[in-house]
């Protein structure tokens, strides 16, 4: 019982991760895919922070009268990972805007259809 309770957080987080991953794979809309990736990434962050937590611990800022601090290392790693995530999301969104302008659609299936039907079409995409 203790085992299940102790791993409960992890189980839910994995469910979140998989829901995020499902959005990425199953959606054909480009923006929704990107949202799915963000959800997936944030869930991984929750995973990291979960295993850094100590029951009865405190945030890792040194104050008097406190001896037990939760582990600072996962926090540092996730801070970095959040920034990497937002960087990727920004670039992804910029790409989607350009794709929309070039193809007229943000739906992957539509875009694939357009691509198949013009093999020798070298359109100069609109300049920025």
């Amino acid at each position: 019982m203790n085992e299940i309770l102790g791993h409960f957080n992890y189980g839910i987080v994995i469910l979140l991760m998989m829901m995020g991953l499902y959005i990425v794979i199953a959606s054909s809309n480009l923006i929704k895919k990107l949202i799915g990736i963000s959800v997936f990434q944030v869930s991984v962050f929750i995973l990291y922070i979960t295993f850094g937590k100590i029951t009865g611990g405190n945030p890792p800022i040194i104050v008097d009268n406190v001896d037990v601090y939760s582990n600072p290392l996962p926090h540092v790693l996730i801070l970095t990972a959040i920034v990497v995530g937002v960087a990727t999301t920004s670039v992804g969104l910029a790409l989607i805007v350009r794709i929309r302008e070039a193809y007229g659609s943000t739906d992957e299936d539509d875009i694939n259809d357009i691509d198949k039907n013009d093999n020798f079409y070298l359109k100069n995409r609109s300049t920025t």
């Binding site: 990107l34 997936f40 790409l95 350009r98 875009i111 691509d115």
Partner: peptide
């Protein structure tokens, strides 16, 4: 313009 789509696909797969 297929470069844009290629880059996006790489972005999704690469980030996963």
């Amino acid at each position: 313009r297929r470069a844009l789509h290629a880059s996006y696909q790489y972005l999704i797969m690469g980030t996963i």
